[in-house]
């Protein structure tokens, strides 16, 4: 019998093999899209840690994505740090910002927290344009980042190198998140979502856990932002409007709230669907996108990952019976 644990290991290995082989068969543009998908998957996983597992709703995670992107870009462009150094630093900065935002957010429940985070999503792009910070942020012009070449003379084009670099980061942070969620801390995070009073009676320090989870969530989404700055080599305030926050939430719900692999499916949706929509009708992309979204939510209410596991279980059940 295949246990859930072995099944998820097999699946991870299979996905990794596909991930390694993919650039050999895809065009450069599609490699770039695949890279972007992984970046969004990390961002969605970050949102999932907070909203899916800990039950704190955020409508403003685009703000942490922006902060991560700017932190990485400023460290690379203004301080001339290598992206190997800039990326983890940007992630740590986002952890601190997220933790500090999470502390006062402890007083806010449900919809009120959603509004407070939404305010963050509205405020951050404006602040990035603010003239007083222009020396650092580049104002409306944004920041250009040098094209990161493959190190140690690895014979890869930049696009392919960035793909593999992103793949490695993605693998690392997904494994770490999976470890975190399947241990003592992950159980505490989920217990707080399900029954805060009982969680506290079991000795869980709710304030500390919620604020730290907020920090870790911001770290993940900020890391994704930092990666995007490296991958695209240019950032500007208009890349981080409140629509970004909404799209991350769309990706979370489509992929599956409270599922780790679902983040990839959600990311695929937010990267691919706009293209499909504009292929179908250039004049009404919004309407087509909306229609696709409604269809999707109606057909798979538990998210794509939930639907896949249910389908798999049915299939496995059928083969066992026959």
């Amino acid at each position: 019998m295949i246990t859930t644990n072995t099944a998820s290991r097999l699946l991870t290995a299979a996905a990794l093999i596909v991930g390694i082989a993919l650039p050999m068969v895809l065009s450069d543009f599609h490699v770039f899209q695949a890279t972007q998908m992984m970046v969004y998957a990390i961002a969605i996983l970050g949102l999932n840690l907070l909203t899916g597992y800990n039950g704190q709703i955020s409508l403003g995670h685009g703000a942490f994505y922006a902060i991560g992107a700017y932190a990485a870009a400023i460290l690379m462009a203004r301080f001339e740090l290598s992206y190997f150094v800039a990326l983890p630093l940007a992630a740590i900065i986002c952890f601190i910002v997220g933790f500090l935002f999470g502390l006062p957010a402890l007083k806010l429940e449900g919809h009120y927290l959603a509004l407070a985070t939404f305010a963050l999503a509205l405020a951050v792009p404006q602040l990035l344009k603010y003239p007083a910070f222009e020396h650092w942020t580049g104002g409306v012009q944004g920041i250009f980042v040098n094209k990161p070449e493959a190190p140690f003379g690895i014979p890869l084009s930049t696009d392919h190198w960035l793909y593999y670099f992103t793949l490695a980061v993605t693998l690392l942070v997904f494994v770490l998140a999976s470890n975190l969620l399947h241990g003592r801390v992950g159980r505490a995070i989920t217990a707080i979502r399900d029954q805060p009073v009982a969680a506290e009676a079991m000795g869980i320090n709710i304030a500390l856990y919620k604020a730290t989870t907020f920090g870790v969530s911001a770290l993940y989404t900020g890391l994704a932002g930092g990666l995007s700055a490296i991958v695209i080599q240019f950032i500007a305030p208009d890349s981080f409007t409140m629509f970004l926050s909404i799209f991350l939430l769309v990706g979370l719900v489509i992929g599956g709230v409270g599922s780790i692999p679902g983040a990839f499916l959600g990311a695929a949706f937010i990267v691919i669907t706009p293209n499909i929509a504009s292929d179908i009708s250039k004049a009404a992309t919004g309407a087509v996108y909306g229609l696709l979204l409604i269809t999707f939510v109606y057909l798979v209410p538990n998210g794509a990952w939930g639907a896949l596991t249910v389908g798999w279980k049915r299939l496995a059940g059928m083969t066992r019976r026959s």
């Binding site: 159980r187 989920t190 217990a191 979502r193 399900d194 029954q195 009073v197 009982a198 969680a199 409270g258």
Partner: peptide, 9 residues
């Protein structure tokens, strides 16, 4: 009194 389990776990 009314059983407070973590229902989704």
């Amino acid at each position: 009194q009314n059983v407070a389990l973590f229902d989704n776990m």
